[in-house]
């Protein structure tokens, strides 16, 4: 029963990951991006759980719970941790218009499929076929990093990039050891906390977090 659904479940999860990534590029509101990030965390956790059940590894199920708690709940909560009223007003004015951005996402996705199939080969497994999604997420995260002006929107790009790396790891080799995953997750959480505090300080100090207005440092 599960065997027949397995490829479809994997496809569903990775599709959700790619869709949320593309939507993050499309949406400009910070709150929407954070919600999409939470959704992506849940999708990633689901992906890990599916792989864990299919491979019969109880450890991976534990990891999926960890991912759910950190990436699905913890990080988005930290990011959204201020009054909903003020966060709703934060609108990003990106350096790339939505059409161009979505076009770029398409091209990056195609590129990652080409790269993975040419360099590593897609393999026969279901997970191997889905691996390019991880690379696409990394590239899209990078795109977000360079096209967003605000520090916190860039942070979301950074987290997307991190999710992409985790996706590749789980799809190609059944995940990194649990201890490593735990440590990396905590590290990312720490980085986000620090950057969050930092962005808050920037806002109170300079009245905004648009990174390209902070040009005083270059001389």
């Amino acid at each position: 029963m599960f065997e027949t659904f397995y490829p479809q479940l994997i496809g569903l999860c990775t599709g959700a990951l790619l869709l949320t990534s593309a939507l993050m590029v499309w949406r400009h509101s910070l709150l929407a991006s954070i919600r999409l990030l939470a959704l992506q965390g849940v999708a990633l956790a689901a992906l890990v759980a599916v792989i864990g059940i299919a491979e019969g590894e109880s450890e991976l199920v534990l990891v999926s719970l960890l991912i759910l708690s950190v990436k699905g709940i913890g990080l988005p909560w930290v990011l959204a941790h201020q009054s909903k009223a003020s966060i709703k007003q934060i609108q990003e004015s990106p350096r790339l218009n939505p059409t161009a951005a979505l076009l770029a996402v398409t091209l990056l996705t195609i590129l990652s499929y080409v790269v993975v199939s040419r360099v590593f080969g897609l393999g026969d497994t279901t997970t191997g076929h889905a691996a390019p999604i991880g690379l696409a997420m990394v590239l899209i995260g990078f795109l977000l990093l360079i096209s967003r002006r605000r520090a916190r929107s860039q942070l979301i790009g950074f987290l997307l990039l991190d999710n992409g790396i985790a996706t590749i790891a789980f799809l190609t080799s059944g995940g990194v050891p649990i201890l490593l995953e735990f440590a990396v997750s905590l590290d990312v959480l720490l980085v986000v906390l620090i950057l969050h505090v930092f962005a808050g300080r920037m806002r109170t100090k300079f009245g905004g977090t648009a990174v390209d207005q902070l040009r005083e440092l270059h001389d």
């Binding site: 350096r95 990078f142 990093l145 002006r149 990174v211 390209d212 040009r215 440092l217 270059h218 001389d219």
Partner: peptide
């Protein structure tokens, strides 16, 4: 290299 972090990224 004009100091813009976006450019470096």
């Amino acid at each position: 290299a004009n100091g813009s972090i976006h450019r470096y990224l």
